[in-house]
Design a protein around this nucleic acid. Structure first.
Length: 379
RNA sequence: GGGGGUGUGCCCGAGUGGCUAAAGGGGAUGGGCUGUAAACCCAUUGGCUAUGCCUACCGUGGUUCGAAUCCACGCGCCCCCA
């Protein structure tokens, strides 16, 4: 085990797989469950680092695909790494770019050894192997690195999902062998779509790799939140989560829907990331205790009440729905900022409340209350 | 006073005899957004007793089988010369 990334479990829910813990890192502790805002290009869109610090974000993401194309891996090393470059003192996680293999698949060509692709910025040709991807992530210097994986779409043929899973497993092993910097943790990613047997096989193989090489500091579930219905994802996860190594952090990649997040915490997930809060904010939608509010809707024109009366964020402290709607309608950049502050706060606050309930032993009551409230109507 | 131009749906604007309820923008209204090619994308946007009908391209009248489109007069706006 890498002692720089000790995961300390602090509380378990007696009636579910839910737990609270702390992941120690060289840049500070991450208290779980937690939500991680996504800062793809060394920026959580519309938010300054001061705002993120004030919101108490404990860890944010960067993206290897985007940052390696611009400003580039060598540049990032010269800049002293991503922490230094963007002046972020707390933990960072870099996503490998596996999601871009999925979302930019028209520019990608996969084989067993790696992936060749053309830059979306200038069409230039690039090639990643698991090893070269690890070196890029080492140049970025985040605390947590994600193995290079292949994220299959939904829906997809079983054969395609199985191939993605097998490549991901093989690449997990190669990433593990390449990534030997003790200042950086490596998380494995489990694929397999909605096929439980593939997911369980993936987890078994990862455990074998750990026996042969060294441990992964965390396990992530990839390939969820890619368009499948919420219930199908939860059914699949319910069968998969019990097989995840209990003593390691469990990271559900790409999930930002509040209700799905709580349901996933209930199944034993500890970490979440998603662009949902920041993207929907820029596009005019706010999470709230009443469910999602689309501030473009005419019904808010004369609504001078606070965005969410039950929210303690800076936006809600000062601004009315009518004002925020006006900013959104006018495409004022301040609207994107204020709603991003609110939405990120909302998810951070939600995971903090879940954690507090877990530590207090009242998590199931907390969940019940959530499902009875209009906030659970957040789709 | 003389000459030239122009008037289109909430706004801008294309269209100069039938394929026009009228391109394209904007605005408005609604929807979507989940490891970010997203301050983006999609849909709708005259009315109705609705596989059809009515009203509609400044106004009135006319030409024509048929007019936003051609003609006459009127009204409004713009430019140039005096």
């Amino acid at each position: 085990m890498n002692e720089n990334f000790r995961f300390e479990l602090q509380a378990y829910d007696a009636r579910s797989g839910a737990r609270a813990g702390v992941l120690h890192t060289p840049h500070g502790d991450i208290e779980t469950p937690t939500f991680m805002p996504v800062g793809t290009r060394a920026s959580v869109k519309a938010l300054t680092r001061t705002q993120l610090l004030d919101l108490n974000a404990q860890i944010i993401l960067g993206n290897t695909y985007h940052l390696s194309l611009r400003p580039g891996g060598d540049f990032m090393a010269e800049a002293g790494g991503l922490h230094n470059f963007m002046a972020w003192p707390r933990p960072l996680l870099t996503d490998c770019g596996g999601f871009q293999i999925f979302s930019l698949k028209d520019t990608m060509k996969l084989d067993d050894e790696g992936v060749s692709f053309q830059s979306i910025l200038d069409g230039s040709k690039h090639r990643w192997t698991p090893e070269s991807n690890m070196r890029l992530q080492q140049q970025l210097g985040a605390d947590i690195l994600m193995q290079l994986d292949v994220c299959a779409p939904y829906p997809a043929e079983r054969a395609e999902i199985e191939l993605a899973m097998r490549r991901s497993v093989a690449w997990a092993s190669r990433c593990r062998l390449e990534q030997d910097n003790p200042q950086q943790a490596l998380f494995a990613i489990v694929q397999g779509g909605m096929h439980t047997d593939l997911r369980l096989e993936n987890i078994r193989r990862l455990k074998e790799i750990e026996a042969e090489t060294s441990h992964f500091e965390g396990y992530a579930l990839g390939g969820y939140s890619v368009g499948e219905p919420h219930e199908i994802m939860l059914e699949s996860m319910a069968e998969v989560c019990p097989s995840l190594p209990e003593d390691k952090p469990h990271y559900l990649m790409g999930l930002g829907n509040p209700t799905s997040m709580l349901a996933s915490i209930n199944l034993g997930m500890d970490m979440f990331d998603s662009v949902l809060p920041t993207r929907t904010a820029r596009l005019g939608t706010a999470f709230s205790s009443e469910g999602r509010l689309n501030l473009r809707n005419a019904r808010f024109t004369h609504d001078f009440s606070p965005l969410d009366p039950n929210c303690t964020c800076p936006t809600c402290a000062s601004h009315s729905r009518a004002y925020l709607r006006h900013l959104v309608q006018s495409k004022e950049i301040t609207g994107a900022v204020l709603l991003s502050v609110h939405n990120v706060h909302y998810l951070l606050d939600l995971t903090r409340k879940a954690r507090a309930a877990l530590l207090a032993g009242t998590f199931q009551d907390f969940l019940k209350e959530w499902y009875e409230s209009p906030a659970s109507n957040d789709y």
